[in-house]
Design a protein around this nucleic acid. Structure first.
Lengths: 128, 128
DNA sequence: CCAACATTAAACCAAATGGTTAAGTATGTA
DNA sequence: TACATACTTAACCATTTGGTTTAATGTTGG
């Protein structure tokens, strides 16, 4: 018994869907387009070379992540940006914010704490 | 010739790697752990049930995305958070910020511009 | 009623993902 | 020298992903 995948992948986590949805250039371009206002599927598909079903799937992924919402109006599906999930990204990002504001102090602390032979790096980055 | 995948997937875009790296709970937990300071591979792997090679691969993905950097010190690989790429996420996020601050005005504008029969929804959302 | 239109669903495929185990490769240590 | 430690690589596997084409579903308009 090889039993390759043991844990069976949860995939239920909200952020998983969210970040996964953002990890594709097509989907990011769609989101960018939607900042200009809502649009129908065909309209969203126009800039891309791929088939309509392909775009349709991308939109489903964005929808599942909550990034866009859909209003069916006759045969036209009108998509609009939701934004709320992007705020969630922002929220997730927040605890890390100190890391691109002052990384150096923490790194320096660590270097001081464990002065290894090999860490004799030639002090590359100036602190201004 | 069925030629299933025509475009061959670029995957070279920086943001693709970045968001993909963030789209996994294990990797996000590793990042969270690293905000407390650098750590070795074994140490990072401890909270997880998966095998060491699995963690090693996750770390490679984080590294490829630039989210962590590695200092090999003897046989110990010390990982630290880099932060800079997370700032890139923030930068990418910026143009959307207005969407979780005031979505309503834009949506209303659009509804005004295209007054469809079927959109006679019973004014669900109050604006306060 | 019938044809064009807007869109999704189904079936398929290659490649990537996330895991596994087993086998390296260095480095420390007795 | 030999053994344990800290890792990575390699080979493998099931599932997911991102695309395709063809078919189906439901409007809209003549």
């Amino acid at each position: 018994m090889t039993r390759g995948s043991a844990t069976a992948r949860r995939r239920s986590d909200r952020l998983d869907d969210l970040f996964h949805a953002l990890a594709d250039p097509t989907r990011r371009r769609v989101l960018a387009r939607l900042t200009l206002g809502p649009a129908a599927v065909t309209e969203l598909a126009r800039p891309f070379q791929m088939s309509l079903p392909a775009v349709s799937k991308h939109l489903q992924i964005l929808e599942r992540a909550g990034l866009v919402s859909r209003t069916v109006d006759g045969r036209v599906h009108r998509l609009r940006l939701t934004g709320e999930p992007l705020r969630q990204v922002e929220v997730w990002l927040d605890p890390f914010r100190s890391y691109w504001e002052d990384t150096f102090t923490r790194v320096d602390e660590d270097l001081a704490a464990r002065p290894s032979r090999r860490l004799r790096a030639p002090a590359r980055r100036r602190r201004s």
